[in-house]
Design a protein around this nucleic acid. Structure first.
Lengths: 240, 240
DNA sequence: CGATAGCTTGAGTAGATTCAAACAGAGTGG
DNA sequence: CCACTCTGTTTGAATCTACTCAAGCTATCG
């Protein structure tokens, strides 16, 4: 597992020069493997590095006092999971592995060096955290205004596109090693209701989620149900 | 109306030197007044400046195809409303005035100059967009996991703190020129249900919203209902 | 093989919505 | 100055989406 996927993702939006690529590669201090369901970063913990997800799936989670939990964003390979900790120093949420993961650690002082010596990369990284915020915003819209089935469809659409960017999804579908309980924590629903919604989507021949895989049967219908517009993912190439 | 409130807000988190202050002040190209309910920035519109809110209240809004609308964040005086457009170039959402507003415009090329010549300010600005994302994240949690009354209480708490930062709120309450319909668009509820929830909070002697003013009668109870923890607002001073 | 985690379905419930109607206050024009 | 309109607030009644509680099922693993 390498950071190629991260570069692929960056290059989907802007050109990254050879020197910049070298700087990014050199910024990694070590790579690690985590098992599934490990709270990798605790809320409020003081941080001195950021985490680049190489393989697997991670999530940002916020716990409530009453024991409920909300996953506020899912991360796919190539994502700089907690790049925002570079300026925030500690996070208001936890970072959790949802599957076994490999990650690369990038010390904050090396990030500081990169932003000093490569102003363009500084902008690219800033841009990256702003796209994360945009994804977050779309989730807010889903939770505020979309029905259960619309939310479910929207999440499947989003993951289709984001995983597709790094070659982990195609028109037929993609691997998704989440439980229905975890999906419910993303979508602000109960696991039981997730189950019913999945049944509806399956029986309508739109999408099937089973055995750790999302099988897309009718992409157009899925997007229609979700009211999906990928603009919020900022996929066009626009030089910074 | 000046940008003093913006500086106050920045200085709540980190020291801003005299030269930096001068650079910020010099970055403003013009100031404008808008009436209430004006869509100041349209989604997808190409942008060459960012907007600093001097006075009034603005919101980020996303419209759905079915006519529904979600306000994803409220902005108070001192906020750099669309600083993220500096890297995103165009926005996935609209920016709306909710009251009459005065704003200062900061051209993107001047922002580029500031970030080049004042690396510390570049970090402060990046930090600022990350705090916006954190607020967004907390709203996601509210919409996903909190009941109507909890959401309402949480929003009142958040505004108490954010407006307090710039001297526009104290323990007794604050001015809030929003309609119940607009509150409903923030909280993912119907205006009718907002009305019932407000009645509950009023009759429990916790908080009263009436005549464009939030009157806090029991701050401790309000926070308790909301499960409010201001950590997500990143108020401690931490030099970048 | 039993234990455990996750999936599935049914029945009853609750929180929030929809539909409907009345009321209050601000601004406008005759 | 009063009727009229418009926007926003308030309340009631009926409905519905999603939740809770409960039970049974399936697959995996030690």
């Amino acid at each position: 597992m390498t950071i190629d996927r991260h570069l692929t993702r960056l290059r989907a939006r802007d050109a990254i020069g050879a020197e910049e690529e070298a700087a990014i590669r050199a910024s990694v201090s070590q790579t690690l493997r985590y098992p599934a369901d490990r709270l990798v970063i605790r809320p409020e913990e003081e941080l001195s590095h950021s985490t680049l997800l190489l393989d697997g799936m991670m999530g940002r989670v916020k716990d409530l006092r009453n024991g409920q939990r909300q996953i506020t964003e899912l991360h796919v390979p190539g994502d700089f999971v907690d790049l925002h900790s570079f300026t925030l120093k500690s996070l208001d949420h936890g970072i959790l592995t949802l599957t076994p993961c490999s990650v690369a650690l990038v010390p904050h002082d090396r990030l500081a060096g990169i932003t000093r010596e490569h102003p363009h990369l500084a902008r690219v990284f800033w841009f990256t955290t702003n796209v994360d915020a945009s994804i977050q915003r779309e989730w807010t819209v889903s939770l505020g205004r979309r029905s259960a089935i619309e939310r479910m469809a929207h999440l499947f659409c989003e993951l289709r596109v984001r995983l597709g960017l790094v070659g982990l999804a195609d028109d037929s579908g993609y691997a998704l090693q989440l439980t229905q309980g975890e999906l419910s924590e993303c979508l602000g629903l109960t696991p039981i209701h997730i189950n019913r919604v999945l049944k509806q989507l399956r029986e309508a021949d739109v999408v099937e989620f089973r055995g750790g895989r999302v099988t897309i049967r009718d992409w157009a219908a899925l997007q229609r149900i979700a009211d999906f517009d990928p603009a919020y993912l900022y996929l066009e190439r626009r030089p910074l």
